Amino acid sequence: MDIGYVGLGGMGHAMASNLISKGHTLRVWNRSPGKAADLVAQGAMRVDHPGQAVASDGIVFTMVADDAALDQVVGGPDGIAARLGPGGIHVSMSTVSPETTQRLAALHAERGAAFIAAPVFGRPVAAASAMLFILCAGDAAARARVLPLLATMGQRVFELGPDPVSASIVKLGGNFMIMGVIEAMAEAATLCEKYGVPRTAMMDVMTQSIFATPLYVNYGKLIAQHDYANPGFKLSLGLKDAKLVLGAASNARVPMPLASMMHDRFLSALAKDRGELDWTAAALNVSEEAGLRSPLSRP
């Protein structure tokens, strides 16, 4: 297929590369043009504006950092919405608010185009190996067209019905649960460390017995070793998602005290200039509150 791909960060770049490897022709755009260089070498065409990635009745994927970035590439004279017409499909793979999803779906519908929300679970290494879990919600006919493409980027696609908001809210719910896992592992590891049990030993037991799942294994290793320097998901984005969860909870009148706590964890870490670290670095706050020296502290 002739496809547009907008947003070539760690996740988007890997997913675009997987589409090219399956024989699809891509027009790609990224705010930093250099990130498209190796994709161009693989056969993609780099364009100068997001709208130029779009064929009026074609399919365009977006994978950008937040709601503001998504609004920017969709709106305006050089944006996706201005070029995508009847029969066209915009597949948004970003984690954004239900309100943004609903608004963009309505914007495209006014032009006869479809909007599919398809956020993902998985870090860049999973994107590179096409092992993502992908959510998918929107118009049934549009979903049928994009499902084969999504299948090239992930190990499983979960269809969640005709309302794109369904995929957005399930994604936020999942990210909230990951925040809770980070906090629980950090507190348990810190408790064991205070009793003289190495964090790594404690985490080995847990991830090779009752919590032998990829999330606990991968995140547990980072937390046990305080290994946050190579982010698969930046802490600053964790704060963004905590805000989105709390916003959705407030709109639905759902108290979520753990989400409030994790918002403050991320905010505190950001105040300590940790926004560029992996979001598991929220565990450092737990260690510091227990009187342990931060591994990031200078002698």
Rank of each mutant, 00 (worst) to 15 (best):
K35L: 07
R46P: 03
P86R: 11
S236I: 01
F121N: 15
V197G: 00
T200H: 06
M11H: 02
M203K: 08
P162H: 02
A229N: 02
A201N: 06
L292C: 03
C192T: 06
E193Q: 01
F133R: 06
G10R: 03
P148N: 03
L296Q: 02
P231V: 02
R83A: 15
G51A: 03
G220I: 03
L147W: 01
P255R: 10
M15L: 11
V146M: 03
G291V: 01
H49L: 10
G154C: 02
V125T: 14
E110A: 14
S260R: 12
N230A: 07
A242G: 09
T62L: 14
A290E: 06
S236H: 00
M131F: 07
L149E: 10
G75M: 13
A188T: 15
A144S: 05
K22H: 12
D278H: 01
A248K: 13
Q42M: 14
A141G: 08
D227Y: 01
G88C: 07
P86G: 05
R293C: 02
H108R: 11
T200Q: 13
Q208Y: 04
Q155W: 03
A36P: 13
F158Y: 09
V64I: 14
Y216I: 11
A65L: 08
I134T: 08
V286T: 15
V96K: 04
K272H: 04
L284K: 00
L147C: 03
G7F: 07
A65G: 08
A249P: 13
K221I: 05
R298D: 13
N218F: 14
V245C: 14
P198T: 00
